[in-house]
C-alpha cells in the first residue's frame, strides 16, 4: 500500500513561503500554502527592480510563481494562520475563518511589515503631500513616472535612511539591513529617469553588507552623481511655496543644514508582521526583544522554533534580503525533511 504523502503547512506566501513550498513539493511532500492576501508574492509584488543589479523584480516573481505551480501544492489565499498547536503526533493549524488543517510539520514564513511612517510624525508622512515611502516610490517606478502630488517632476529628491530602524523612539533598535542599499538603488533609478533631478541620501551609516552593494554605492557616486550627507534628519516642514524643508546636521561638516526638497522618500524599515506576531503569541512561540521570532540557536538552529514540528523561514526571524530569504527558506525545508524522516 502506498503511504499517504506527508503534509506540511506553510504560513505565508511571500518569497520564503513560496520557495519553501516549491522545494517541499518537488521533494514529494503535500503542501498547503496559506497566504493572507489574494495573491501570493508578498512585498516583492510591489517592487519594480531589485538591488544590487537592478534586475526586474518580475524575473524573481516569475521564478517563484513557477515554483508553486505544482500539483502537490494547494494555495489558500485571503487566509491567515491564527494558531499552531500539537494534536497527537500531528500539528493542528487553526486558520482564519474557523477551519483547521492537520499537518506533519509547519513552516512559519509570515514575513515582515513595513514600518508605518506615520509613527515618525516629525517627518510629516500623511501630513505633507510630497512625503512618500520607499515602497510608494516603487509604485511610481512601476507607473513609469516620478511625479510630485501636483503632477510635476521633482527637481530635488531626498532619501531619508533608517526611518523606523535603529530608533529607540519607535521601539525599534534593530537595523533593517536592506534600506541602505535600496536607497542607493532607488537614487540611481531616480537619477536615470530624471537626469536633471538632484538626489540626496541622508544616512547615519552606509551598511553595504552584501556582494556588489559597495560597488553599487560607488557607482551611484561615480556614474550618477548621487549626493550623500551623513546626518539623521530631525524634522520636516513646508514653506510658503509648499516645498518641503528638512533639518539635518551635516555631521561631517559639523554644522546644521537646512534643505528644500520636492520629494522626500522615507526608507521605511522592517518590523515583525502583525498577523505573524499574533499567531506566534497565540501558539506560544517566543519573540525576541526586536519582536521578530526567536530561533532556537542563532548559529546552528536558525530555522528551529521552540515547538516540535514548527520551523521558521525568512524575515519572520530577522530582516534579510531576497537572496538570504531564499537560502533561509531552503534551509528550513532541509530541517523540516530531516525532522520528518527521523519521526
Amino acid at each position: 500500500m502506498k503511504e499517504a504523502l506527508k503534509h506540511i503547512v506553510v504560513a505565508g506566501g511571500g518569497v520564503a513561503g513560496m520557495e519553501a513550498a516549491g522545494a517541499l513539493a518537488e521533494m514529494g511532500f503535500r503542501v498547503t500554502l496559506v497566504e493572507k492576501n489574494n495573491d501570493p508574492g508578498g512585498h516583492l509584488g510591489r517592487w519594480h527592480a531589485l538591488f544590487p543589479d537592478r534586475r526586474p523584480a518580475d524575473e524573481v516573481r516569475h521564478y517563484l510563481r513557477k515554483r508553486i505551480e505544482h500539483r502537490n501544492i494547494n494555495v489558500i489565499t485571503g487566509t491567515t494562520v491564527e494558531k499552531i498547536r500539537h494534536h497527537g503526533h500531528e500539528v493542528a493549524v487553526d486558520l482564519s475563518g474557523g477551519t483547521e488543517e492537520r499537518a506533519d510539520a509547519v513552516i512559519m514564513a509570515t514575513g515582515f511589515d513595513l514600518f508605518d511612517a506615520r509613527r515618525k510624525e516629525e517627518y510629516g508622512y500623511g501630513i505633507y503631500d510630497n512625503v512618500i515611502t520607499s515602497a510608494e516610490l516603487e509604485d511610481l517606478f512601476n507607473n513609469g513616472r516620478i511625479v510630485k502630488a501636483d503632477g510635476k517632476e521633482p527637481a530635488r529628491v531626498g532619501f531619508i535612511h533608517c526611518v523606523g530602524s535603529r530608533d529607540e523612539k519607535v521601539n525599534n533598535n534593530h537595523c533593517s539591513k536592506v534600506c541602505c542599499v535600496t536607497a542607493v538603488k532607488q537614487a540611481i533609478e531616480v537619477r536615470k529617469m530624471i537626469p536633471s533631478c538632484e538626489v540626496f541620501c541622508f544616512y547615519m551609516d552606509m551598511r553595504m553588507y552584501g556582494p556588489y552593494y559597495e560597488e553599487l554605492y560607488r557607482e551611484s557616486q561615480e556614474v550618477h552623481n548621487v549626493n550623500f550627507i551623513r546626518g539623521k534628519v530631525s524634522e520636516a516642514s513646508v514653506n510658503i511655496n509648499n516645498r518641503l524643508v528638512i533639518k539635518v546636521e551635516d555631521t561631517l561638516a559639523g554644522r546644521p543644514l537646512k534643505m528644500e526638497l520636492d520629494l522626500m522618500v522615507l526608507m521605511v524599515g522592517m518590523e515583525m508582521s502583525a498577523p505573524g506576531a499574533k499567531c506566534a503569541a497565540a501558539s506560544g512561540l517566543p519573540a525576541g526583544i526586536n519582536r521578530f521570532l526567536e530561533t532556537a540557536d542563532h548559529h546552528f538552529g536558525n530555522n528551529l522554533s521552540s515547538m516540535k514540528g514548527v520551523f521558521y523561514a525568512g524575515t519572520c526571524t530577522a530582516p534579510m534580503n531576497i537572496t538570504d530569504t531564499i537560502s533561509h527558506a531552503r534551509a528550513a525545508v532541509e530541517e523540516t525533511v530531516r525532522y520528518l524522516n527521523r519521526r
Binding site: E122, I127, S234, E235, S237
Partner: peptide, 9 residues
C-alpha cells in the same frame, strides 16, 4: 510642536 507637525497643520 515642531516635532508634531500634524498639530501645526
Amino acid at each position: 510642536t515642531h516635532l508634531t507637525p500634524s498639530v501645526i497643520a
